[in-house]
Design a protein around this nucleic acid. Structure first.
Length: 363
DNA sequence: AAAACGGGGCC
DNA sequence: GGCCCAGTTTT
């Protein structure tokens, strides 16, 4: 046994939490716990596990339940596809595997909701297969101990950490090693405020030596999609074939993405027509207009900023063309396209232009 | 490779 | 408001 695994398992026996799905070889219990604990803390999933086992002590019981019953039991846990997959997998075990869980990685991977991690977990903990699990805890602990800056959410990163975890595997009792490594990450080498002072690996931890504990593991930040709600006012004037848009300038620091990205009014959430029309700004602008107000909504993803733009157009007839362009930060935009295309082509044209205005884009 | 899928805890 | 949690599936 490697020195690392030996010391880790020693720590585990001293510090592990007593959990009902531990110290059992029953693949049903282990599988159930693993599905429940996907992206879920033990504190949150514990009660659900107990209720599931109580209601359905074995895979055959679970398979015999209805999907609605399973979903009901899952209520409040989140990621509800897990519940549907759980139920489907139970039926797979019953019908495709004669009621016994498959005991190979590939067999387990064939079950709905069982991916790389869960297959390795069940294989090692229920069947003693020598295979390493790689979950969020493993990424974190190994990244810190070995000072690995490889991003964990890339194919290359997963490969690096899987190979390292595999190389540290003891010759026997991989299941205990896997649980020990995860428990160490969950209790000691935590995401925030890890207990480095009392760590059994303090003297050899690269991150501690390099003062990079809080920087590891590295995770490529995913593009967060900001949703924005732009409300445009389209003013028709003359005798119906020309139109103008009144727009506000963007505030300083806002991403400037082109002429059409200026909304008349931006709101934090979708607003009902009524409440928008009751705003002071709205009344001010539409004071001399008449005609029925109509609106049309569109949604598009900005190609460069990845913002999700919800655009809503309000159209009113304007009796007398107001010169509002000098007021406050308001601008009157008269684009050739707007004069050229009467409604409803106007709005379609507007959106075509919006998505094709790459020449204007800056960041 | 990236996005979608949830609810809860923590800073 | 962002990040994280015993990830998997779909696009």
């Amino acid at each position: 046994m490697t020195n690392f695994a030996q010391r880790l398992i020693h720590w585990y026996h001293l510090n592990k939490r007593s959990l009902p799905w531990r110290d059992t070889n029953d693949p049903y219990c282990i599988w159930l716990s693993e599905i429940i604990l996907q992206q879920t803390r033990v504190d949150q999933g514990f009660a659900y596990y107990e209720r599931f086992v109580s209601a359905w002590p074995g895979v055959a019981h679970l398979a015999a339940a209805s999907e609605d019953e399973v979903l009901k039991m899952w209520q409040g846990l989140g990621y509800y596809s897990r519940a549907r997959n759980l139920h489907k997998a139970a039926k797979q075990v019953l019908h495709d595997h004669a009621g016994s869980f498959p005991d190979t990685i590939n067999g387990l991977l064939g079950l709905q909701g069982v991916g790389e991690y869960t297959a390795a977990a069940i294989a090692s903990m229920a069947f003693g297969t020598k295979v390493a699990v790689v979950d969020g805890n493993v990424f974190r602990v190994l990244a810190r101990l070995y000072g690995i800056g490889e991003p964990i959410n890339t194919a290359q990163g997963k490969k690096v950490f899987t190979e390292l975890a595999t190389s540290l595997l003891p010759t026997s009792d991989a299941g205990t090693y896997n649980q020990a490594l995860m428990e160490f990450g969950a209790l000691h080498c935590t995401p925030r405020k890890p207990q480095c002072e009392t760590c059994i690996f303090a003297s050899s931890c690269h991150a501690r030596r390099d003062n990079t504990v809080s920087d590891l593991p590295v995770k490529l930040s995913k593009k967060t999609i900001r949703k924005r709600y732009f409300n445009y006012l389209v003013l028709l004037h003359g005798h119906g074939n020309s139109a103008s848009l009144y727009l506000n300038k963007r505030s300083e620091g806002d991403i400037w993405t082109g002429l059409y990205e200026f909304a008349l009014i931006e709101t934090a959430a979708p607003v009902a027509s009524e409440s928008l029309m009751e705003s002071d700004r709205w009344k001010e602008l539409t004071a001399n207009s008449e005609g029925r107000l109509i609106h049309q909504s569109h949604q598009y993803k900005h190609p460069l900023t990845h913002q999700l733009i919800h655009a809503r157009f309000y159209v009113v007839n304007l009796q007398n063309l107001l010169d509002l362009s000098g007021q406050n930060t308001l601008s009157l935009i008269k684009h050739s396209a707007l004069e050229k295309y009467p409604l409803p082509r106007l709005i379609d044209r507007f959106l075509d232009d919006t998505n094709g205005l790459s020449d204007y884009y800056q960041t």
